[in-house]
Amino acid sequence: MNEKIRQLLDQMSTLEDDLRREVQAQEASALYQIKGKRVEFEAAIRQAHRQLKTSFFRWLVTNRPQNLITGPIIYSMIVPIVMLDLCVSFYQATCFPIYGITKVRRSDYIVFDRQQLGYLNFIEKFHCTYCAYGNGLIAYVSEIIGRTEEYFCPIKHARKMLGAHSRYARFLAYGEAQDYEAKLEQFRVRLGDKQPPERT
């Protein structure tokens, strides 16, 4: 990777981080404050949320029938999702210390805070918790696998790939053979440094 591309990637990363912080600050100042793990709304907003809440029975009769019919299929996916979580977490716990890779903090990816929203009924909160777990887990797994790929094979593909993980842009160009082993070792050393959570 040439120096110009590296500089542009650094600038993009910095700008994306700045944008994310600004958006979060604007949302937080307008609607809520985060105190530890608790999200707190102003009293007027809490009251408005309670008034907008749909009762379970009203939700049940106004919900789309296809959502109710497919519910058992969606929720049966919890079995492979939990198995994936257990397997990947076990892999990280056992192998990352051996490789010298900094572990991925699951709390950076799996976030449960939607249940604090007063305008959701208990079924909607349950849906949100399930989706937060599933999507957070995929991001968590992607980061673990991304670090593994960076350790063993930080080389881009010849063909364009959709949905690449956050580390992929910094990988070596396809066919960049000069000093490959030395560059690979640099990637491995960096993986042992304490790292902030990556974007997903």
Rank of each mutant, 00 (worst) to 15 (best):
V141K: 02
I101F: 07
I123S: 04
A30Y: 04
I110P: 01
E42A: 02
V82E: 05
Q33K: 03
L84C: 15
F57L: 07
L137G: 11
I144L: 07
C95D: 06
T54Q: 05
K35H: 01
I74K: 13
L84V: 13
V82N: 05
A28V: 02
L137V: 05
L84G: 12
I144P: 15
A30R: 12
S107V: 08
T94N: 13
F122P: 15
I123D: 08
T62N: 07
I110Y: 03
R58W: 06
G36Q: 00
I145V: 15
E124T: 02
E27Q: 06
S76F: 13
L52D: 09
F90T: 14
R64P: 01
W59V: 03
K103P: 15
L137M: 11
H127K: 06
I98V: 15
L84H: 08
E143L: 06
T54D: 00
T102M: 05
E42I: 00
E124L: 02
Y99G: 13
C128D: 10
I98E: 06
L84T: 15
K103R: 14
N63I: 04
H127T: 07
H127S: 12
I81E: 11
T62A: 05
G118Q: 00
G100S: 02
Q116C: 04
Q51G: 04
R38Y: 05
I73L: 15
R147L: 02
A30V: 04
D85T: 06
Q47Y: 09
K37Y: 06
G134K: 12
Y91F: 13
F96C: 13
L60V: 05
A132P: 09
P72N: 03
Q66I: 14
D113M: 09
I145R: 09
Y109S: 02
L117C: 04
Q116F: 01
W59M: 04
Y91D: 06
Y140F: 05
A139R: 13
I110V: 13
K37Q: 08
Q116M: 09
Y140K: 01
R105F: 10
S29F: 03
V88A: 07
G71Y: 11
G146V: 04
Y99L: 15
R106K: 14
G146H: 08
A132K: 02
F122M: 08
A93S: 15
H49V: 05
G136W: 06
P65Q: 00
K53A: 04
I34M: 06
Y109W: 05
T54G: 00
C131V: 15
L120V: 00
R58E: 06
Q33S: 08
N121D: 08
Y130H: 07
A43M: 02
V141M: 02
A30C: 04
A48H: 02
Q92K: 07
I81K: 14
G146Q: 12
T94F: 10
R105D: 14
Y99I: 12
F112I: 03
L117N: 08
I110C: 05
F112S: 01
K35G: 00
R58M: 07
Y32T: 00
P72T: 13
F96P: 14
L60T: 06
Y109Q: 07
I69D: 09
R64M: 09
S142A: 10
N63S: 15
Q33N: 03
K35C: 01
Y140M: 00
I101N: 00
Y109D: 01
C128H: 10
N67K: 12
G71T: 09
R105V: 11
L120K: 10
E124P: 00
A48Q: 11
T54L: 01
I74H: 11
I69M: 08
V111Y: 09
F57A: 07
R38A: 13
A43W: 00
L60A: 10
E124I: 01
